[in-house]
Simulated assay, not measured.
Amino acid sequence: MKLSAELQAFCGRIGHVFRQPELLLRAVTHSSISSKTRPDNQRLEFLGDRVLGLVMAEALLTADTAASEGQLAPRFNALVRKEACADVARDLGLGEVMKLGRSEMMSGGRRKDALLGDALEAVIAAVYLDSGFDAARGLVLRLWGGRIGAVQSDARDAKTSLQEWAQARGLPPPAYIELGRDGPDHQPQFTVEVRLENGAVELARSGTKRAAEQAAAKALLARMEATDDRA
């Protein structure tokens, strides 16, 4: 089986040449276009999620041998959450090679966090099945790059810091809600709300969903820490 030029270029971006190219084709095939002869990526996504989790857990333990479970858990969640996977997928141009049904394409499926994150996890599983765990580990560590160091440093991103603040007070992780998206496709603006179980809320607006989430988290964390100082 020979891959299309677009998928061959994608292989170059992830740094892996498939011995079984049908695995990559399956990994980028969404259920909206699957058939009996064209399986979708859902089973691969299930496997890839577990491979990603193991690689990240191992990487975090290695990167910070003194960190407690309470410190490691939010860092792990920040790295494997669907939004993080989608960010990596966007960097790779994965949305451009995904195989989608017409209705999913018309609804902006190539930009959706859930679809991008699932497809990236499926790609990880495809590499694992094609060449084993060491190859999959190498892929994940290449693709996540500096993100691993960022979440375990003192200068952690605002979302991770807010989650750690909440966890330290027995609260569940913050909830992020996309309230709106407007502007042209090439220059969108996202409005995001972050909410804690204690009722605290902040809004932010930015050119990417991730940046809006970070800005909202930073604002809410600053307000919560100020409240702590006054207590």
Score class of each variant (00 low, 15 high):
Ala73Phe: 13
Pro74Ala: 10
Pro74Gly: 09
Arg75Asp: 08
Asn77Arg: 15
Asn77Gly: 08
Leu79Phe: 05
Leu79Ala: 04
Val80Ser: 03
Val80Gly: 02
Val80Thr: 09
Arg81Glu: 13
Cys85Met: 07
Cys85His: 08
Arg90Cys: 04
Arg90Asp: 02
Asp91Cys: 14
Leu92Glu: 03
Gly93Asn: 04
Leu94Thr: 01
Leu94Phe: 03
Gly95Met: 02
Glu96Ile: 04
Glu96His: 03
Glu96Phe: 00
Val97Lys: 01
Val97Phe: 02
Val97Glu: 00
Val97Arg: 03
Lys99Glu: 13
Arg102Lys: 11
Ser103Trp: 11
Glu104Val: 12
Glu104Pro: 00
Met105Ser: 10
Ser107Lys: 14
Gly109Gln: 02
Arg110Gly: 00
Asp113Asn: 09
Ala114Gly: 05
Leu115Tyr: 07
Leu115Thr: 09
Leu115Gly: 00
Leu116Gln: 02
Gly117Asp: 01
Asp118His: 09
Ala119Val: 06
Ala119Ser: 14
Leu120Arg: 03
Leu120Gly: 02
Glu121Tyr: 03
Ala122Pro: 10
Val123Tyr: 04
Ile124Cys: 07
Ala126Asn: 08
Ala126Gln: 10
Ser131Glu: 10
Gly132Val: 12
Gly132Arg: 12
Gly132Ala: 11
Phe133Asp: 07
Ala136Ile: 08
Ala136Tyr: 07
Arg137Trp: 11
Gly138Met: 12
Gly138Val: 10
Leu139Gln: 05
Leu139Thr: 08
Arg142Cys: 11
Leu143Lys: 08
Trp144Met: 13
Trp144Cys: 06
Gly146Asp: 15
Gly146Cys: 06
Ala150Asp: 14
Ala150Leu: 15
Val151Glu: 14
Ser153Val: 11
Ser153Thr: 09
Ser153Asn: 12
Asp154Pro: 07
Ala155His: 15
Asp157Lys: 01
Ala158Arg: 04
Leu162Gly: 03
Leu162Cys: 08
Glu164Cys: 09
Ala166Asp: 04
Ala166Thr: 05
Gln167Lys: 12
Ala168Trp: 07
